[in-house]
Design a protein around this nucleic acid. Sequence first.
DNA 1: TTACTATATGACTATATACTCACATAGTAA
DNA 2: TTACTATGTGAGTATATAGTCATATAGTAA
Lengths: 109, 109
Amino acid sequence: MLTRKRQLLFKKQAEIAKAIAHPLRIAIVDFLKDDEQCVCDIAVHISPERSNVSRHLSVMVSAGILEYRKEGLKVIYKLKTPCILEFFSCITAVLKQQAKENEKLLSAL
Amino acid sequence: MLTRKRQLLFKKQAEIAKAIAHPLRIAIVDFLKDDEQCVCDIAVHISPERSNVSRHLSVMVSAGILEYRKEGLKVIYKLKTPCILEFFSCITAVLKQQAKENEKLLSAL
DNA sequence: TTACTATATGACTATATACTCACATAGTAA
DNA sequence: TTACTATGTGAGTATATAGTCATATAGTAA
């Protein structure tokens, strides 16, 4: 059985993974990959529902994925742990494999 | 705004991320990192609730993270996309950074 | 001060997810 | 056939998450 210590580790890891596991949040992370951005620009780029964007941003801040600074009226978010981006290269690999399998299946029909 | 195509991509990526984002599922992936394992051993190692373990396994199979084969009565699961493991090294980096910050905060009190 | 802009949050509803129990299925062995 | 073992699933409840609207806060500018 798992030790308490390992259980705690897996729980923490799951919290971080959960904080990424949403289409809009992934879109936000992708949008932030090169540069920090204000909520205003994130909203324009990702989704017009400001309050929803705010919530998604705060989920990722709580999880330690993003950080922000205030500049006048604007709040500017940026990736705190850019290695998150590597995660997507793996996910993309999973998706490619799935596509390959579907292709195989299709050609067998 | 996001194109439909990119929205679809982010949705797919989120599905895969969601399939990992659970403490038990992470524990299972970790348990499978070196070798394939039957449900019986996974249950012994991770959690005694067989039906719950079954469900978590099927979530990850649907997402394309795991695959399985049957051998007699046993069903043996293995990682289909081992790059998932790299994901954890990033998550661990996030956790380490958080720990460092907490330390800093503590020493400032 | 008032009016304005950018962002965050409370409260609510809708939906998704996790867990549990009982039962079903499928393979094994007598 | 019956009895057994390993695994999966239906149905229910409990909990978590997402999205929306209205409102609050904080900074700016007149």
